[in-house]
């Protein structure tokens, strides 16, 4: 995101400025939507709020450093390998840790994800140190700034983020609607008991949800790292995407897009017109406003609301 903000033209005329603001909103909304769909996937299949999503996304981004040295000279291969590793890490987290929480109270599972997040942060510092890293350099990729019509600019990584988000959502919608496993995932989310009666392996479905969630989160994490470097503060971006998912309604993918747009627009506009220091607060202000007015979110299921 910092890359996109840095690309903002200085002293341009009003129209150019508003186009640049729109571009910034689009990029930030893409970030939130791509991260937010991870919250939605896990919540809607297993009713668990994964508060370690930010950390898992960060781990996937750090894995890019590892694959970058492994596939030196092939940035795309390194990127794909790291994304797939994210998928494996997510599924493994479910199978090793969260599987034992199935059938426990939802609050216990949520607390387990908090503990997991703290653990992952510690592991990342131990393995990769707390210094800022630049996976772009490791991959030998310079992240050029692209000029858009109207004088706006966007970094290549930010543009890739917008496109990846669109592709990820199209893929997820198609997966959930047209594939057997996607339909099973929706079925398990609606009624796990009945799903088990129909022979669906709940652990398999949940592991898949965790895998996909970390995969999409990892894509976001890697592209953000390519744009703006990589350090522990990435967790905050993951946490800021949570209001976006909740504003839309936690069990709705369409809602996650809408929520991401609302939160991103509020954030970009307040940063520009009021005070840049508000950046980290805005999503949570929107969240509080939403919880007061319509706690189940814009597109969420009203009767399924379970306040934890």
């Amino acid at each position: 995101m910092r890359g996109a903000v840095a690309a903002q033209p200085r002293g341009n005329h009003r129209r150019g400025l508003s186009i640049q603001l729109a571009v910034n909103i689009a990029v930030l909304a893409s970030i939130y939507a791509l991260i937010g769909c991870g919250y939605v996937l896990i919540y809607r299949t297993s009713r668990v709020l994964n508060l370690a999503h930010g950390e898992l996304m960060m781990v996937a981004a750090y894995l890019l450093l590892a694959t970058a040295s492994l596939f030196s000279g092939h940035p795309l291969a390194a990127f794909a390998a790291s994304a797939l590793l994210g998928l494996v890490v997510g599924a493994a987290v479910y199978l090793v840790l969260m599987r034992k929480m199935t059938g426990e109270r939802v609050l216990a599972a949520v607390l387990a994800t908090v503990a997991l997040g703290i653990l992952l942060r510690g592991i990342v510092v131990l393995v990769w140190s707390a210094q800022q890293q630049y996976p772009g350099q490791a991959l030998g990729w310079s992240n050029p700034a692209l000029a858009l019509p109207g004088g706006a600019r966007i970094s290549a990584a930010a543009a890739a983020l917008v496109l990846t988000t669109a592709a990820a959502y199209a893929g997820l919608f198609a997966f959930l609607r047209y594939t057997r496993w996607g339909i099973r995932m929706r079925a398990a989310g609606q009624n796990p008991l009945l799903a088990a009666q129909r022979g669906i392996r709940l652990h398999g479905v949940y592991a898949l949800a965790w895998g996909l969630s970390t995969f999409t989160g990892g894509l976001a994490g890697m592209l953000i790292a390519l744009d703006a470097g990589l350090e522990q503060t990435m967790v905050v971006i993951g946490l800021k995407a949570f209001p976006a998912a909740l504003v839309g309604g936690l069990d709705s993918l369409v809602g996650a897009i809408a929520g991401a747009l609302i939160v991103a627009a509020a954030e970009v506009l307040l940063i520009h017109y009021v005070n840049p220091l508000l950046a980290d607060v805005v999503p949570f202000l929107v969240l509080i406003a939403m919880l007061l007015a319509r706690p189940w979110g814009l597109f969420g299921t009203r009767e399924e609301l379970d306040r934890v």
Binding site: R186, A187, Q190, L193, L194, Q197, R198, G199, I200
Partner: peptide, 25 residues
């Protein structure tokens, strides 16, 4: 295979989706 007393279909899935969601033998 059990047909339960209540909650016997997936309400937000279409009829066709209800029939393909299962894992058949």
């Amino acid at each position: 295979v059990l047909v339960p007393e209540r909650d016997k279909v997936f309400p937000n899935l279409s009829v066709a989706e209800n029939l393909v969601a299962n894992v058949p033998r």
